[in-house]
Design a binder for these strands. Structure first.
Lengths: 169, 169
DNA sequence: TTGACATAGTTAGCTAACTAACTATAATGT
DNA sequence: ACATTATAGTTAGTTAGCTAACTATGTCAA
């Protein structure tokens, strides 16, 4: 995702709207601001995680395992839940296994399948990262009160409901 | 940026909040929903652009050139405005030049510098892409009225103001 | 006026995603 | 029962980003 350092001014938007009558200026501005804030947040998150030797992909895998009662899942399920391909998941798991944060356990009920289990080192890593992540996240959202947060989530849901319009056909 | 297909339920968030007292449940939920909608929008945008042989990086370069009165800029300025490195910009410009959408013009006032100019083919490409992009964008934002859009932008500004908290130190 | 530093752009090599093709195993329909 | 199809995971090769190092040119201060 691009960083979009230079959002269009109102004048520029109006100039484009003149050339392209399909343009809805306030829709464009809202869309670009949303993308902008989200990419900035995503970069900041990666910066936070990288201080602990993680990036979003590796970190999210650890969290998904921690969520499970048994601290265990499978590569395909993890791939689906993180939204990466199974091929990418193979690489993420290789690197996390190399660091001792999880282990591959061969399941004998279905010999195609492999169980992925968080190690105690993996738990310890999350116990180190999550407090830092949660503290920073708390601060970065401090500008909105509870009511504003609920409202924001409602509005995001509205947008989410119509995303299909973008990719349809 | 990850796709985050499986956002945590309230129960999961509460479980984590029990283990990590730093957690602010509504902050986390708002943050994740924001990232989620933004990545979905970004994917949808790429899907729309790829029908016209573009992706965000190449497309944004064309737009930045179109904004200029002279349809001209330089690699470094374009790199700054798109938030990619100069090295990445070299690659983007190579590919756009190969497609005939822009040209490199050697500037003799400063022989280090190169002028990048949108060709008429480049303009034609934008004239093909932008109406499609704007129409889809209009539809995807149709769930919010003018007032809600302004409100959303205000809230995003609030978050933006505190992003520093995430990456500080 | 020249030595040190700064700027513009490129090249080379790395990384983390991707797709496509592959192996192995399981499930299913005739 | 066995041929077909589906599923789980990996491997190989591609892509679009990145950083670091490089060339060439320009600027500035002793």
């Amino acid at each position: 995702m691009l960083q979009l350092r230079d959002l269009p001014t109102t004048e520029i938007l109006n100039k484009f709207a003149q050339r392209y009558p399909e343009a809805d200026v306030s829709a464009i501005a809202t869309f670009l601001h949303l993308l902008r804030v989200a990419t900035d947040l995503s970069f900041a998150l990666d910066e936070c995680l990288s201080r602990h030797g993680l990036l979003q992909g590796r970190w999210w895998v650890l969290i998904l395992l921690m969520r499970e009662e048994t601290k265990t899942s499978t590569p395909s399920v993890l791939a689906d839940k993180t939204g990466v391909t199974r091929a990418t998941m193979t690489g993420l798991l290789d690197s996390l296994e190399r660091d001792g944060l999880l282990e591959r356990i061969f399941d004998h009920s279905d010999r195609r399948s492999i169980a992925i289990k968080l190690t105690s080192q993996g738990e310890a890593k999350l116990d180190e990262v999550m407090p830092d992540y949660y503290s920073r996240l708390r601060e970065s959202m401090a500008g909105l009160n509870e009511e504003q947060r609920m409202l924001l989530q409602e509005q995001l849901k509205q947008i989410n409901a119509n995303i299909g319009a973008f990719s349809k056909e």
